[in-house]
């Protein structure tokens, strides 16, 4: 199987005006991302995530090593026809409307007018921008601008989508929509590469991850393989009585196990928030994504 993204000892050293090495932003990154995978790059600020994206998009040239995207060098213009990218910050053309922005980016993909219009309509509807599509982006909120950013990344129905901090600047409902969007893309066989500081989200949606620190790869592999603690087990029971719990604990102790924690399961704050907002009935609603073969209502 051909990798969608493959890097080998990819290195980037930023230089000063005189060409002297100033900062090694990425050091010997070697990763492989297969078709249909959701891959996460995580790490603290300045660890080399964005530099990796820039290298994979051909925005900057590597100092060492190599990378292929969809089997070709990142600078290959043809590769970009099958790729969608959302940068960390959404600086779009403020004087254009959402419609004009999507039309402009669609033209860069050589999409004909009818296709541009159809895709733009679908995306604008999906990201809830229909009411503001004729307004200039300078009048948009940060979240709305971000949503236009998503639309432009998907205007060409790409095979590979790269999201740099996709949920940055979005409210919890929109964050959940983005997570569902990524899972939806995965269901449709698309490959997604993303970075995020929201580790819970990464854990929820990524198949594999790489943890970077100071440009170096510290961990790389399947999320489950990285997170699993082989000497510890979590069991979740429903409708277990207090007496039953004590008996299980005693049984475990008798088997030589040390009980670390025993408490009621907590819901995630995100679930509670979404339910609360939905129950308040103020129009802010979250709609779970449509299942395959099911029409979105």
């Amino acid at each position: 199987m051909t990798a969608v993204i493959e890097t080998s000892a990819l290195t980037k050293v930023y230089k000063d005006f005189w060409g002297r090495p100033k900062h090694k932003a990425l050091d010997q990154l070697s990763i492989r991302i297969d078709p249909g995978e959701v891959f996460g790059l995580i790490g603290p600020n300045g660890c080399g995530k964005t530099t990796t994206f820039k290298l994979l998009l051909g925005l900057i040239f590597p100092t060492g090593g190599q990378a292929t995207v969809l089997g070709k060098p990142p600078t290959d213009v043809g590769v970009k026809a099958r790729l969608g990218f959302l940068p960390e910050e959404s600086y779009l053309y403020h004087w254009l409307t959402a419609d004009e922005t999507l039309d402009f980016f669609g033209r860069l993909f050589h999409l004909d007018r009818a296709t541009r219009k159809k895709r733009a309509d679908e995306l604008i509807e999906r990201f809830g921008l229909a009411h503001a599509r004729k307004r200039q982006i300078r009048e948009y909120s940060k979240g709305m601008t971000r949503r236009v950013g998503f639309c432009q990344a998907l205007i060409n129905d790409p095979d590979l989508v790269i999201f740099d901090e996709p949920t940055s600047g979005l409210d919890p409902i929109s964050q959940r929509q983005i997570k569902d969007l990524i899972l939806d893309l995965k269901r449709r066989g698309k490959t997604v590469l993303l970075s995020s500081h929201l580790l819970g989200d990464v854990q929820d949606i990524c198949d594999r991850i790489a943890i970077l620190h100071q440009g170096q790869t510290k961990k790389y592999g399947a999320v489950r393989d990285i997170l699993v603690q082989r000497d510890s087990i979590t069991m979740t029971f429903k409708d277990l009585s207090e007496q039953g719990r004590r008996r299980i604990e005693d049984l475990a102790r008798a088997e030589g196990a040390r009980l670390v924690r025993s408490e009621n399961t907590l819901e995630t704050l995100e679930d509670v928030f979404l339910r609360t907002v939905q129950e308040s009935g103020d129009g802010l609603t979250y709609r779970p994504p449509a299942k395959e073969g099911e029409e979105r209502k």
Binding site: L59, V77, E89, L108
Partner: peptide
């Protein structure tokens, strides 16, 4: 400076 070039250069635009 406003990083709009990230959008442009990630499209099939040399």
């Amino acid at each position: 400076e406003q990083k709009r070039v990230y959008y442009l250069a990630s499209k099939p635009l040399s």
